[in-house]
Structures are given as structure tokens and as C-alpha cells.
Design a protein around this nucleic acid. Structure first.
Lengths: 242, 242
DNA sequence: GAGTGGTCTAGACCACCAG
DNA sequence: TGGTGGTCTAGACCACTCT
């Protein structure tokens, strides 16, 4: 069994500090010095700095050399950080709505050329096309098309399994773990079928994400095209100046 | 004078490695072990790990415990990483176009309530409204409105100075350094004035960024609303699974 | 079992900020 | 001038991967 110590001391401290910030520093303020925190948690200063680095990357704190470590009260309330790959249902719930999945279809089709190229597969090779709709308080909020090359599937499965999150399916039936997602952000306008599916008026703006997912060996294993209706889910980005 | 050593050893190594990757690892591959790299550069393993951590955050490499450090050839060619705050002209140039700035207007107006709230200012307090257009190969690509509270301006200035990047103006005339930008990503449709300005047909999709910039003390100092025409600049996001 | 990355420690010196 | 964060070192042990 994995020991608690390994791989988690700094992360544990980061988690503890994060909770403490939400409790005691809602309106900002300065943290104790790194040395004090280190002594308080009984770890070395380096470990504390690792923990603080995690929180700094999240934007939750910022540091000023010679002065101290401060809390960023604004970053505590970001709706959906674009850098974390959440499940869609989590996204919807975090935005304050009741989440629901509506499976639409599962088909086997040949890969169109553009998707084949991004998956580094020969064109017209066989793939699973899985279409799903995600509802927020009963209203369509997210439409998702997943394209999975058929030859990756290693185990037999029930069709219903494709209604669950695709990453779970890939782990269990393809032995593929996704570790990285490269997404293109594309503004889009509702038209044609999309209007019906999302019950969105023609000409309304949407956010389209074209995503390629890579496994731990950095090979592309999944293409996804996702449409977000504005209003239900909104993304925030934290840009740091260097 | 600041010594070369301080604050830069790991960043220097990161830069050197980044260049080396672009030269020698365009199609992926495995790096030497951390110990070997450390000896090669004559630094400790900890410093190498700091450097590799920078590259890993950029997505340029990924590591597999017990196996090695590998190059991610896909992340090398991202057009515009959404997490770095570039100048607009850089964005356009990186996309392969000739960049040009066209100043539109500078006005003093009272702050509307929604922007005032995000800047934590009283409504109707005075602010500078700076409007600019950025062209790619002569075609409108980005429209930008900057809203700067007037009381932040500390030094007299020439109107032309507001044609330069706003962050430069803030540093020089307001003594304000922006260290963090919080952006909301909003899909939008061309309409009204925007169509004329961007010379974009009505009903075309745009990307709108609503940004609040914070200074080093984490106080909001600038609101910006930016519209990107799709096609000229496209954003990519790298999502890491944890 | 040998080699890799992941984590942690203890100590040092530096640049920066504030009183 | 004392305290803070920023950086670097040398060494240790661990879990994981590969063969």
C-alpha cells in the first residue's frame, strides 16, 4: 500500500492551507511567513514552498518578495477555471444548476479526413461517434460529440456504458488514461441541427471547443467537439504576467 | 547590478532546454535523465527539476515516474496559449499576419454600474475610455476597449501615449504594474457598431473577453472588453488531468 | 535489480521591503 | 537592520518502470 507520506506531504499542506484560506481569509490578508508555517506543520521550508506554489498557480495567493504572502480573494470564486478538465455534470452543478445527461446516439462511422488527421489515423478508418446532451435545470446547456477510434476498444461492452463519461469508458474498455487535453476555442453561431438540439434560437452565440485528448504516452486517442450555450457555463481564465 | 546567478539559473536552464527541444526533439522523444542534465549544466538536480517544472507547465514535456522525461511535440506549435498575456500585436504576428494599431478614440466618461462594480469604484466616477482597433494584414481582427479610472493617472501625458499598449501607460503614468488578469470568455455575435468596426458581417461569431486587471497589491485597476474575430487569432488551452 | 522521476530535508546566500 | 520571499545545493529515501 502506498504510504501517506509519499507524494502527498506538500499537497496535503496545500489542501489544509486552501481550506484555512476559505475560512479565515475570505477578504484577503497576509499569511504567516514561510518559516512559521513550516514550523506549524512540522515540515521543511522547501515543502511549504511547494505547497504555496500550488496555491499560487491556482491564483489563490500571491507573493511579494521581502514583504510576505497574500491572499487573492478574487480567485476564490471563479466559476469554472478553464485549465481544469471537469466532467460536464460537475461544471453544470458548480454553476448552480441541476445536472442531467441525455444520451443521443452511438454510431460506427468512418473518420472524416480532418478528424483523422488530428488523431493521426488513416482517413475512413472505423470510429465510434458518441453524441450526448447535458441539461442544466432541464434546459440543454452542453452538446458533446466524442469520436473514438474503434481499434482502441479492447473489451466487450454494453452500449449503455457509453452514456457514462467517456474517460471512464476509455480507462475500463480501452486501457487508455487521458492525461492531457489540447483544446481550440472557437466562437460559433447556432445553426441547423444544433439549434434543435440545444433548443437555442438560430443566430445565437455559442462556444465551441475542439479537443484532442492524449494518453499517458502522448498519443492522441480521442477527438471531441463540444458546444456550450452561454449563460449556463462560463469560463474564466487567470493570466499571469511574467 | 543584479547577478546573473540570482533568480535565473533554473529559468536559464529552462530556456536553454526549450531551444534544444525545438531543435532536436521536433518529433518527440526522451530526454536524458535529470542527473545527466544536471551534470551537463553543472547544477544540482533540484535546479534541473525547477527548470523541467517550467517546461511541464507549458506542456512542452511530460514525465513518467520510473521511465523518463518525454517531449510533447504537439504543445510546441500552439498558436496562442490563452494563459500568457501577450500584446495584441504579438498575437497577430504570431498568427502569421502583419500587425497594425489603429487608435479610435479617447474619452472621459462616468463609469457604468457594472464596470464600476468590477473595479470596486463608486458608480459614475470618472474614467478614461480608450478604444483601439488591431489589424491583421490590414483587416480588422481585434477591437479593444480599455476603461481606466481617472484618479489612477498621476502624471501629465500626451494623448498619443494612449495609443501605445495600455500596460505601458499604466506603468509610466499611473505607477501601476499589472500582475494578474482575470478574464471571462463569452461567445458573441456581431451586431450594430461592432459590425462596422470589425468589418464583420452581421451575425458572425466573435470571441469576447471581459478582463479585470489587478496590480501587484491585488487591487483592480483596469477593465477591458476585447472582441476577437475568429480566423485571425485562435486560442488554445492545455488542460492537464490531475 | 538498475535506473528513473517524486518527494523531503537542512542549510546557505541573495534581493527586496519595511520600520 | 531584521524579516521576508527567491534561489540553489547536497544528500537521502521512496515508488515506479523496464528488462
Amino acid at each position: 500500500m502506498t504510504l501517506r507520506r509519499h507524494s502527498l506531504l506538500s499537497k496535503n499542506v496545500a489542501r489544509a492551507l486552501r481550506q484555512r484560506l476559505r475560512r479565515e481569509y475570505q477578504s484577503g490578508g497576509r499569511l504567516p511567513s514561510e518559516l512559521e508555517i513550516a514550523q506549524e506543520y512540522g515540515v521543511s521550508r522547501g515543502t511549504i514552498r511547494d505547497a504555496l506554489a500550488i496555491l499560487e498557480r491556482e491564483g489563490v495567493i500571491f507573493r511579494r518578495q521581502g514583504s510576505g504572502t497574500y491572499v487573492n480573494q478574487y480567485a476564490l470564486n471563479i466559476q469554472a477555471s478553464i485549465e481544469s478538465a471537469y466532467e460536464f455534470t460537475d461544471l453544470i452543478r458548480q454553476a448552480g444548476y441541476q445536472a442531467e445527461i441525455r444520451p443521443l446516439s452511438v454510431e460506427r462511422q468512418p473518420l472524416p479526413a480532418d478528424i483523422a488527421a488530428r488523431l493521426e489515423r488513416p482517413p475512413d478508418s472505423d470510429a465510434l461517434f458518441v453524441r450526448k446532451l447535458f441539461l442544466a435545470d432541464g434546459e440543454p446547456a452542453i452538446y458533446c460529440l466524442d469520436v473514438l477510434p474503434t481499434d482502441l476498444v479492447r473489451e466487450p461492452y454494453q452500449p449503455e456504458e457509453l452514456h457514462a463519461p467517456i474517460f471512464d469508458f476509455m480507462r475500463q474498455r480501452c486501457y487508455q488514461t487521458v492525461s492531457l487535453v489540447l483544446a481550440d476555442i472557437i466562437p460559433q453561431v447556432t445553426e441547423g441541427q444544433l439549434a434543435e438540439l440545444l433548443q437555442s434560437p438560430l443566430g445565437q452565440a455559442l462556444l465551441q471547443f475542439d479537443e484532442v485528448s492524449f494518453n499517458t504516452l502522448n498519443k492522441p486517442v480521442l477527438f471531441s467537439r463540444v458546444y456550450y450555450r452561454d449563460g449556463y457555463v462560463r469560463f474564466s481564465v487567470l493570466r499571469k504576467k511574467m
